[in-house]
Amino acid sequence: MSLAAAIRSRDVSTLPSRRDEGWRWSELASVVRAAPPLAGAITVASGGGPFAELTADEEIVFANGQGDASPLVVEGERTVKLRFVTRADAAASLSAVSILVKAGGSLTLLESYEGEGEAYVADASLDIQLENGARMERIVVAEDAETAVSVSTAQVRLSANADYAQAVFATGAKRQRIETRVQHPGAGAALRMDGVYLVGGHRHADLTTAVTHAGVDGTTSQMIKGVAAGSGRGVFQGLIRVAHGADRTDARMRHDALLLSDKAEIDAKPELEIFADDVSCAHGNTVGALDDAAIFYARQRGLPLHEARVLLTEAFVGAVIERIEHPGAREVVAALAPRKLEALTC
């Protein structure tokens, strides 16, 4: 049962536990022991959030789960800010939105999770559909409170020749999970699914993705970078499934993670499920510490240890940030990363 459904039915007994394969590293059963009440209404001023400096055609705000739930239909070229704002203590905020990008349309979605308060539970559900030849770039910045439980789930359906790209920037919470499930028709559609997680303190971030290639001639490219410091825990679960007959699929998945503390933890499961023979699929995964030789090099150039670590970590996650196409969003994330890393590496 989803988190939102459990809270609505006020029955948390069915929340995923360690025994549920897809949630083994991010179980919710022990962190949501009772269904919290729904959070009360709040007023959120427009123009805030991490993308405040950027201009957009439209801003949609879900404030403690309250907002305009009518479907967002995009024709032509649009930039939309989608803000999930939660300001609550021990209460729940449930939001759902659906997005349709019409044939030939193009959407840049600047999505943010802005949470303040103690022990709130937030659930956001997105239903995204791209019609023939549509384009969409989704940039997600998730900043939740350290004691929060926050789950975002996006179902993405692509049509032929669609182009979907996303970059997620997650900083963790008590549990923070950003899950994306993509139905990929092949047929010339292209998919990029990038992400960065930076966790410190006792924060936990989980990036989970599942892509199903159902038809011929599809491409998927995925680059995830993670940094865990303090007692932070980073989780990456990626699944690429190539269905029977989905020939000429080209799918590549990469996950690299840095552990900056002996108390931090990284768990990864990069999975391939291939039912077609004429494919080229690969995944790579590395987990390790910062390279001593690189730190030595930076230090002998005069950088203090701390700065050397920030510089190298920044370069490490920079590879993902550089792939963001929207220049403004790229700058926002590029500026956010060092600030977060500064806090993690000190």
Binding site: L259, D267, I274, V287
Partner: peptide, 17 residues
């Protein structure tokens, strides 16, 4: 499945199909 619980371990994994 890869589970790393200290900062001084190095894991590399490659897979192709």
């Amino acid at each position: 499945y890869i589970e790393a619980k200290n900062a001084q371990s190095t894991f590399e994994h490659e897979a192709t199909t």
